[in-house]
Structure formats: C-alpha cells, structure tokens
Design a protein around this nucleic acid. Structure first.
Lengths: 310, 310
DNA sequence: ACTATGTTATAGCTTATAACTATAACAAAT
DNA sequence: ATTTGTTATAGTTATAAGCTATAACATAGT
C-alpha cells in the first residue's frame, strides 16, 4: 500500500470519476485505474463500483475510507509541518505521576532557559498514559514508581515497548492529610488507624487496569473511596472531608500553603521512584539538564539518589 | 515520502543501528542507508546522528518520530483490519443534532434488521462534530437545521468540504418547558415572556464557534444561561429550574414521559431541517432505508416533507 | 602494532513497477 | 449514426528501490 494510492482514492471519491480525478492529479486515467486496481487486489476487497457513467463507493469502500482518511490526515499534518522549513523550537516533554519534585524541577528548568521561543510540556497523568506518551514519542521521559506489587507487570510492559526504568531514589510510603486531621498528632500511622477516613486517589482512565494504580498499596480495601483527576481537588478534599492519600512523602510546601501534612505510614513496603525512557534513545541535552535538576530537587527533600555510575 | 521509510526509521531507532535494523527488515544495509538518506533530503532535516558505533536520534528526529508514529499506528490499524479477510459487518452511522425523530427512526431501523452482527452508530453531537464526522467518513449522513442566520456560514463550510444539504422539512421554532411551567397555559409565547426563565442550551465544543449554536435564535441575549451536553440533563433542568429550550417542535412522548411540553414561539423565523452528505457519494442501501423511515417519522409528527423529486 | 569485527557511506548494476501511449469496449446524449 | 462521455487492457518506457562489492573508519583484543 502506498500513500499515493490513498490520495488517489480520495480524489476519485471526491470527484466521482477516474477521468476527472486523473486530470486533477496530473496523471493519466489508465495509471489511476491501475493504481486503484492494485490497491483493491492487495486488500482483497472491491472499493469502487465502476459504471459507464462514473464511479461510486462500495460499502467496503466506505469503511475503508474512514481508515484511509485517518492516515492521510496525519500525513498532511506531517507534510504541513515540514514543507515550511522553519527552524525548530527548543522542545521537551515529560509525562509523570503527580509529584511535587517533578513540577518544581520543571519550573526551574524553564526559568533557566535562554531562548524566547520553545515548546515545553509537563503531562501529569495516569500511569498508562505515561507509557502511551513515550510510545508515541509525545514525551521523552516518564516518571513513576515501582513497588513489589506492580513491578513485574510494569517491567513486562516496558520490555514489550523497548522502554527501560532507571531508579532515582527509594521512598517510604507516607499518608497526606489536611492540617486539621486528628491523625497529625501521631509520629507514624498504621493501616488500621486509617479505617475511618475516606481514601482519596487519582482516577485511572481504564477501570480494569488494576495494576496501574498510582498509589502504593492500592490493593488494600478501603471503606470509603473518593477518586479525582486533579491534584488541587485532592488537596481540597483532604481539608473538606478529612480524607487521606498515600504517596511518596514528597510534597512541596510552596504549592500547598502548609495545609497538607505528610505522616510516615508504618508498613513493610517501599517504593522506587524512577525514570522511564526508550532503551536505545539517548536523552536530549534538555532532558539531561532536567534530570540533573530533578536529582538536586530530590536531594533537597532529603532523599539519597541511586546512582548507577557508582 | 513512503510508508516504508517511516517503518525503516522506526526500526533503526528501536535497534539503534542500521546494521541490525536491516537484518530485521530483511534487506541490505546500503538499501536502508539510502532510504533514510532520501527521506532526510526530502524533509531537508537531519533525522539521525551517525557514528562509527551506531546511530541516535537528533532533536529534529525526535520531533519527526512523534509525527511518524501517528501515521504508522494508523496504518497498522488499517493493515490489521484488512489482513484477516473477515466478511464485513453491516454498518451505518449518523451524526445529528438532538432531535427525537432522529432517535426514533434509528430505533425502528435497528428493529427491522435481519442480521445478527452489525456496527451501527448514532452520534448525537454538536454541529461542528457533524461536519467532522462526515469528513472523516465516521458517519455517512448528518442531520441539522439551517435558518436565515446560520445558513450562509454553514453552506460555505459544506461547499469547502464537498458536502451537500438536502432539506427535509420546515419547522417553526417552539420552546420546550416542563409540564409545571406557568407558560404552558399560553397558546404561544413571545420572546418577552421568556425573560425571567433560565435558557437551556447544548454546550458547543468550541466556544467561539458562535455560528454553530444548535438552537435557533441563539443570538438573542438571555439573562440566565445554562449549558449542558446531555439531553437527559436538559429535561431534568426544565423541571428543576423551570428552564426552557428552543428547538424544532419535535419531541417524542415515548422518550419523555409527557413531562415536557412544546409551545409555539411567536417569531418571524423558520428553520429547515435536513440531511448533510458527501456530494459525490451515493447513499448506501442502509442509509436510504434510514432516510425512508426518517421521512415517515417526520410526517407522523405532522410535518410536510420537502421532496425535490416533485 | 596488528588483526578481527564492528560501524555507516558510496558506486554501479539489476530489477521491479509506476506511469505513459494507444486502443478497446461500452453507454448516453445529440 | 455520431459525438462525447465513461473505465479497462496491452505493451512500452523511465524512474528509483534494492542489490553486490567495496571503502572508510572505530573499537577491542591479541
């Protein structure tokens, strides 16, 4: 199958005639007939109904057009981008779970930029989307955690997609609660202490993707569950309904007005936060710079960077 | 640009080597080198950084990959569909504004089907999406209204996209209110009568697409506006807040439990409801069947079909 | 230092095939 | 009947994708 064949077909459908289409495509009618014939032979379906007065789409052809249009639309987008030879803007994208250090490092990276035109994207999203973004080359790196429970599944997904995980640091699970929550008096909390409070978690796109749950220990059954998709909302709910969430113990005071408190969770599990990237592709200079900043921010929070070079 | 070149590039990026990629693609390394060279020349950008120990993506290459992936993913979807030569399921799709007769005719069409496998879709959506669905061949026909105000703009859009409008019937605007609304005592209402009630309308995807407003007379300024995206919601709001909406005067009692009342609106404007389709493409048998049913349903509501064959 | 093995690039040839010209076969309108 | 419109087929030509052989260089191991 060639892109030309798809364009030819679309022109024929648009004009309702091989003859007219061939003129508009600046080619001869027999060439066009042949091109479509080849396409039909390859697909083993009849796309067009030829009569002596013109052509019309078959039902198969109608269905094929819906696929074809998707392809040609994407191609024109690409062509559009590269026919004007504009110099490329500096660009960089990260997809990450919701962590304060990811955001603060991103902000510092932006502040240090010396160019006045750029395309930078920070996608705070669900775990599955992180893998999708990497696969589609929409993001260069991803940031997420592995623990004993999700490791096997996520490693398998990464292997299948030529992705690799580079550990950054180990963190002990904490719970986050509003500053008025009775639990803040405790030095650490046990799972049993949490029973009577609503459990706040991030909405996962696909309900059955159990293993993608962003919060550690998410297999534990909670009495009351509240799912949201926005970080600001989760903070509101901590104050509003005395809810709690479980995460890595990293939270930025700047962003949260001192109204959110982290308390160590007393369980026998730890999480490894790290970076996901394409195995064979080296990091861009911008990505390497971001990683450097990220590591410094992590250390500022008092965590020890796992460095493979040592 | 050829699809092969995109696939080659992806394999090279995946393996990090021309040599290894050529093996996996069952071709020789010089051929592969040449294919990529040609691609780079065509795009006038350098995609890959060649060293004596392998290759890596340039920043331009990274950006290109995000476009390329979109294309190749769509292509694999297409290949996937046509490599197994399954017989096609009977399929048909309509995109329409929110009208009861569209739904009831669709239901009748489904009931009359003799096959047990099919793909049928009814997309009740905003005006812009109707055009998009037709353009992408996701729907075969669209149903919407024209009036004096939106006609020029919509006709222009249709012309640009090789679409045509076939009028079905003329309708006078009505308002719809809940059965407890004080206005139901009137035989007809004037715009002034409506001032004190909230105006309910359908959310339009793009806020600035003023001309796509689904309701007739939507240019008039209403004191209180409520926008929703779901028809069930609009019916709830009619009862709950005594709101009203403006439409064609067609509503199915079966679907709405007699709790919604239509009242003629006393204005000097009328709307023409009709069908939008690709100009050059004939309707499938299923679409023609649907159209026949649709016309009968419209007549059952007491409207006169505009038939171009007379 | 030399060899073996890895990398990508270049030159020239072969071959596949897309598009061409000329013509056929048919339909509808004048 | 003739003209003008369809699409399809046969045979030729020209473009270019892929091939083989080889060059140019880098790295690792004797």
């Amino acid at each position: 199958m060639r892109l030309e064949q798809l364009e030819y077909l679309e022109m024929i459908v648009k004009t309702g005639s091989f003859n007219e289409a061939s003129k508009r495509l600046f080619m001869t009618q027999p060439s066009l007939s042949n091109a479509i014939k080849k396409l039909e032979e390859e697909l083993k379906i009849k796309l067009l109904l030829r009569t002596k007065t013109g052509v019309s789409l078959t039902d198969d052809g109608r269905e094929f057009m819906s696929y074809s249009k998707q392809v040609t639309d994407q191609v024109s987008l690409l062509q559009e981008r590269y026919k004007k030879h504009e110099p490329r803007k500096k660009s960089f994208s990260v997809s990450a779970q919701h962590y304060a250090f990811v955001v603060s490092a991103f902000v510092e990276l932006l502040k240090g930029l010396d160019v006045d035109e750029y395309n930078f994207t920070l996608r705070e999203t669900e775990t599955q989307n992180i893998f999708d973004d990497l696969n589609e080359f929409k993001s260069e790196i991803g940031i997420l955690y592995l623990n004993n429970f999700n490791e096997k599944v996520l490693q398998k997904i990464m292997k299948e997609n030529d992705l690799e995980f580079q550990p950054l640091f180990n963190a002990k699970p904490h719970i986050f609660v509003g500053y008025r929550n009775p639990l803040i008096k405790k030095k650490s909390v046990k799972l049993a202490d949490l029973e009577d409070y609503p459990y706040l978690s991030y909405e996962q796109g696909d309900a059955n993707s159990f293993f993608f749950a962003e919060e550690i220990l998410s297999t534990i059954v909670h009495k009351r569950n509240i799912k949201v998709s926005d970080r600001a909302t989760i903070f509101n709910l901590m104050a509003g309904v005395n809810g709690y969430t479980i995460s890595s113990g990293i939270i930025s005071n700047d962003l949260n007005d001192d109204k959110i408190v982290a308390i160590p969770l007393d369980v026998d599990d730890s999480m490894t936060l790290g970076l996901v990237k394409h195995k064979q592709i080296e990091l861009s200079l911008t990505a390497a710079e971001y990683l450097k900043i990220l590591k410094r921010h992590i250390q500022n929070y008092g965590f020890q960077i796992i460095d493979e070079n040592n």
